[in-house]
């Protein structure tokens, strides 16, 4: 199976503070992966490296076999939040069109508008197209950002803490959209909730510090949660991450069979 994202002995530090030390892991094409870790573990750094917003001090990051900068057209990114001026007058459709943004000069064409329309349908926000982005609820905004990421038909979709501050209905709608994408798009969800993941998850990758080495990424198995009362996450019951068991780098995604 082809590899979508590969980290080979990647090291990165902010100033003198080391965040990743020879970090290695990979995610296969078509996999639904969850990158777990507490705040400050290095999740955002890993995202920035995949998106080409930061460069490793040592090691190599590749996305679909290319450098992150070269693969930018294949990657859709949904940030945790957008810090923007609330006085910024921008419609939902205009935000989604940003997913089709030409890097250099140039304006949006008819194809871009059609792609934006399709992406809004996929994310369930087509009815909001003409609404002001500032007038939406937090959950609706997050789904608009998902539509923006989908507008470029990415092969890899990255979502940073997609359910934080989200109401249950929006969370269900979001995971329903992600469930429809599963299999044809590689999905990487980053979350600080290290205990449970969505039932869509194929691979639980946990960032931890071990033996003084920061940013070690290990695969853990997951199991369905039987307990009553645990909130369902969109596309079914949640899965518990079994932190006591490491799967190792060679335990790769094999679809439903492995679970």
């Amino acid at each position: 199976m082809n590899v979508a994202v590969r980290f080979d002995a990647v090291s990165f530090s902010y100033g003198g503070i080391e965040v990743l030390d020879h970090t290695s892991f990979h995610i296969h094409e078509g996999e639904f992966a969850a990158l777990l870790g507490p705040n400050g573990a290095g999740k955002t750094t890993i995202l920035k490296l995949i998106l080409g917003l930061a460069r490793p001090a040592h090691g190599r990051v590749s996305v679909f076999g290319q450098s992150p900068e070269a693969a930018r057209g294949d990657v859709g990114y949904v940030p945790q939040a957008v810090v923007y001026d609330p006085a910024f007058p921008v419609s939902v459709e205009r935000v989604v069109l940003m997913g089709r943004l030409p890097g250099a000069s140039g304006r949006y064409c008819r194809d871009d508008k059609e792609a934006a329309r399709r992406a809004m349908d996929e994310a369930g926000v087509a009815a909001l197209a003409d609404r002001s982005y500032a007038a939406l609820s937090g959950g609706q905004r997050r789904r608009v950002l998902v539509a923006r990421a989908l507008a470029s038909s990415p092969r890899l979709l990255i979502l940073d803490e997609p359910t934080s501050n989200m109401d249950t209905e929006s969370e269900e709608l979001l995971f329903r959209s992600l469930g429809a994408l599963k299999g044809r798009t590689t999905i990487l969800i980053v979350t600080h909730d290290t205990s449970f993941v969505s039932s869509l998850t194929d691979a639980a990758l946990c960032i931890r510090e071990r033996g003084g080495r920061r940013g070690e990424v290990v695969r853990h198995p997951v199991e369905p949660v039987a307990e009553e009362g645990l909130r369902e996450r969109g596309a079914g019951p949640v899965l518990r991450v079994l932190h006591e068991t490491d799967l190792g780098e060679d335990a790769c995604f094999e679809g439903e069979e492995r679970r």
Partner: peptide, 20 residues
């Protein structure tokens, strides 16, 4: 450059991921 200006004012990181 209106789309590029708009996107970089709205979400600079995302605009960078689109090559702006």
């Amino acid at each position: 450059f209106l789309p590029q200006i708009e996107a970089s004012a709205f979400d600079e990181d995302f605009a960078r991921t689109r090559g702006v």
